[in-house]
C-alpha cells in the first residue's frame, strides 16, 4: 500500500493542508485508488524516450528591461486578509 496514513500525514504537511485525524483514513483510501490508477505507468517501456515538459517547441521569449509598474499598491492589497502600513501581516515569522 503506497498511501498509508503516515504518508498522507507527511504529504499533507508538505502541502500545508491540515487534515483532521478523522478524515485521514478516507483520504488514504482515495489516494491509494488514484495511485492504483497511475501505477500502470511504471510498466510502460520508455527507455530512450525523451521527456515532454511542454507542448510548445518554442524558446523562452525575453522581455525588455523597462519599468511597467502602475504603482497601484492600494488596489493590489485590497483583498488582503490582514495588512497595515503597506505590509501584509502574518503571525510572527521565527528565524
Amino acid at each position: 500500500m503506497a498511501f498509508d496514513q503516515d504518508t498522507v500525514r507527511r504529504t499533507a504537511h508538505l502541502a500545508r493542508i491540515a487534515l483532521p485525524q478523522t478524515e485521514i483514513p478516507a483520504v488514504a483510501d482515495q489516494l491509494e485508488r488514484i495511485m492504483g490508477l497511475v501505477e500502470e505507468l511504471r510498466a510502460i517501456e520508455t527507455t530512450d524516450v525523451p521527456i515532454m515538459a511542454h507542448p510548445l517547441d518554442l524558446d523562452q521569449p525575453l522581455r525588455p528591461d523597462t519599468v511597467v509598474n502602475q504603482d497601484q499598491r492600494e488596489v493590489l492589497m485590497a483583498s488582503a486578509p490582514a495588512a497595515e502600513h503597506g505590509l501584509f501581516l502574518v503571525p510572527k515569522v521565527i528565524e
Binding site: 497595515e84 502600513h85 501584509f88 502574518v90 503571525p91 510572527k92
Partner: peptide
C-alpha cells in the same frame, strides 16, 4: 514594528 506579527514586504 508589530507585536506577535511579522510584516511582509515584497
Amino acid at each position: 514594528a508589530f507585536i506577535g506579527q511579522s510584516g511582509i514586504d515584497l
